[in-house]
Nucleic acid binder design. Sequence first.
DNA 1: GTCTATACTAGGATAGAC
DNA 2: GTCTATCCTAGTATAGAC
Lengths: 199, 199
Amino acid sequence: MSSVTVELARKRLSAGERREQILLAASELFGSHGYVGTTTDQIARAAGISQPYVVRMFGTKENLYLEALNRACGALMATFRRVLAEHVEAGDLGRELGEAYIELIADRALLRIMMQSFLAGADPVIGPAARKGLLDIYRFLKEEARFEPDDIVRFIAHGMLINTLVGSELTSFDDPAADELVDCCLGAKADLVRRATAG
Amino acid sequence: MSSVTVELARKRLSAGERREQILLAASELFGSHGYVGTTTDQIARAAGISQPYVVRMFGTKENLYLEALNRACGALMATFRRVLAEHVEAGDLGRELGEAYIELIADRALLRIMMQSFLAGADPVIGPAARKGLLDIYRFLKEEARFEPDDIVRFIAHGMLINTLVGSELTSFDDPAADELVDCCLGAKADLVRRATAG
DNA sequence: GTCTATACTAGGATAGAC
DNA sequence: GTCTATCCTAGTATAGAC
């Protein structure tokens, strides 16, 4: 009889579903507060479970971080490859990839956790993973998208600028000068980004 | 007599000298490991004094960080203003400022602590300081250097790219692909940066 | 699959001596 | 001006029950 009891409170999920939920919460938190700045307890509460269960599920906090980071890198590369595949000769590939990049911000955490990792070069385990992520992007632009060197630099530089604006929260900060800078850098896409990074 | 005793071990410095020494060590460490990733004890050891004395000197760790960050922002703006003042009508101001920016990396920690702060937008006290730093740069480029909007974006974007390459330690990482990316982004200045960020 | 209780370590800050 | 000793909190990880 007790197994049929209606459970309105927390649901018992499959291991897979719970993993997803934890990874989602972790990406968001790691993305805004960084690796050391985020506690496994915050992640647990955001995912609606207990702190020890988070650790139990991923072994260590570091492991969880790496998995979240690799997810983000994977999603980014997949998006880029999809855009490239759908690309018709006539169009401007650089602009298409750029727009796809901005739209990835709707995923919120995605770009931020990558950026957090890019600055953690000194970390013995996050550092290598971050460098690999950056190099993958570079190789894609060079070998798959066949960008010219100058276009590669421009593209990556602009990406890092977007990451910085979002990371500094200038895109969610209410100030005329901030708005001006964000408009200047993002143009027509500024409002899209503001909406994605608000609240 | 005891006051004349030769002291070969740790010197007793004036408060001012000691402050400088601590700020130097703090900038370096905060720059590579971030605010939360750096302990006051690491800073103390790097400066050759005891952990409680670091705290005693600056009140709190947060305070020390803010002071290091403001130093960095101040130095950057001072350099930019000097370049602008020495600028002759004929030359290319954008290039001159860009070169000055790269040369600031010789100061190692300077750009890295700024970048760390740019990603800490969510922090209630570092966040505002970082946004102020970014906006100061923007205002300088727009109102003092009189850059066109497109040039502002290009300039800041390229700066963030440099910060990312240094932060990820791709500039001190021995790998052909990494070297290629760094050369591609920094051109003739690549080796200067590599030397500054090595070891 | 998920919890509670808890062990253990690290780190910021304070007190007070010299 | 600088140290040693120490308090206290926070945070990761483990053990073991249900």
